[in-house]
């Protein structure tokens, strides 16, 4: 889910700025990007949370039940009001990565999987270390924040865009992945445990999905996933230099949202240094 404006509710303004630029990048480089916006809903008893969410975000429209039904017919009659973020987008991360691999291969970039190589031992004038949480050995202030998600298949409901449901304890989003697949996410726990999804988290996510629409009660659980998000103390990404190694990390829960912006920062840094090296006077200045 590429939701820079929704993320504004719980993140620094920089995330929205960088994320908005990233949506444009994805739209130019990944044909599978879907730009249908996103919807934010609440159960009636939590309506105050929707107003609060609206206060903290922008680039949205308040929409009524009729408009909700027009956008998402399967949610007709279930919600009286919602926030519609028309410029947000979503993608299937696995397909997006596969596409990037193909495009790089077309340009003659060799990608080797399953190779053990530490950045300091890598050949070349410059090394970009973007190993995520695996770079903990080089970034002592990087911490892992556990995230868990559930993939389900449900033929009884169709959604055209990600739906975010606010809840005081179990906020969740559901992203349609096509072919009846939905990703339900995601927990955020200050833990570096990498083990399987806990029963508590699975129950909370599935309960919340069921609350969003009872059709999810009959969905098949296809996958339970858990891993660590790499984060610095401010939960914002950074590019750091150590000799010839550039370390780009700390994308937290915004990997696909901020990766293009971070990559551009890395590229700009490398280009500028190459330029500086070519012109000694500039370097001295």
């Amino acid at each position: 889910m590429l939701a820079p404006w929704c993320e504004r509710a719980t993140t620094d303004a920089a995330v929205a700025t960088m994320g908005a630029a990233s949506i444009e990048w994805w739209s130019q480089h990944f044909p599978g990007l879907v730009r249908n916006g996103s919807l934010v809903v609440v159960q009636s008893r939590d309506s105050a949370d929707l107003a609060r969410f609206a206060e903290r975000t922008d680039h949205f429209e308040w929409i009524d039940a009729e408009r909700i039904a027009a956008l998402e017919p399967d949610l007709a009659g279930r919600y009286r009001r919602a926030l519609f973020f028309p410029d947000e987008a979503h993608l299937d991360p696995r397909r997006a990565l596969a596409t990037l691999v193909e495009r790089l291969a077309e340009r003659g970039v060799a990608i080797r999987f399953g190779v053990d190589l530490l950045p300091d031992a890598a050949p070349g004038d410059a090394v970009v270390d973007c190993r995520g949480f695996a770079a903990r050995d080089a970034l002592s202030d990087l911490r892992g924040v556990r995230g868990e998600m559930v993939m389900v298949r449900c033929r009884d409901i169709a959604l055209a865009r990600p739906i975010r449901m606010l809840h005081p304890r179990i906020p969740l989003y559901i992203v349609p992945r096509g072919d009846g697949l939905f990703m339900i996410g995601a927990t955020m726990i200050e833990s570096e445990r990498r083990g399987p999804v806990s029963v508590r988290s699975a129950v909370e996510l599935l309960n919340a999905a069921y609350a969003l629409h009872p059709a999810f009660g009959e969905a098949e659980v296809v996958e339970l996933g858990a891993d660590l998000r790499p984060a610095f103390a401010d939960n914002l990404p950074q590019v750091r230099r150590e000799g010839r190694v550039l370390r780009a990390n700390g994308l937290f829960r915004h990997g696909f949202l901020l990766a293009p912006a971070l990559a551009r920062q890395v590229a700009d840094t490398l280009r500028m240094e190459t330029y500086d090296a070519d012109i000694p006077e500039r370097r001295r200045a």
Binding site: R143, G144, R146, I189, E190, S191, E192, R193, G195, S198, A233
Partner: peptide, 16 residues
């Protein structure tokens, strides 16, 4: 319980 998943896995956060 919630932040650590019931193990020592919350050390990074607790250190902060």
């Amino acid at each position: 319980r919630r932040e650590s998943g019931g193990e020592r896995a919350g050390q990074s956060f607790w250190s902060l």
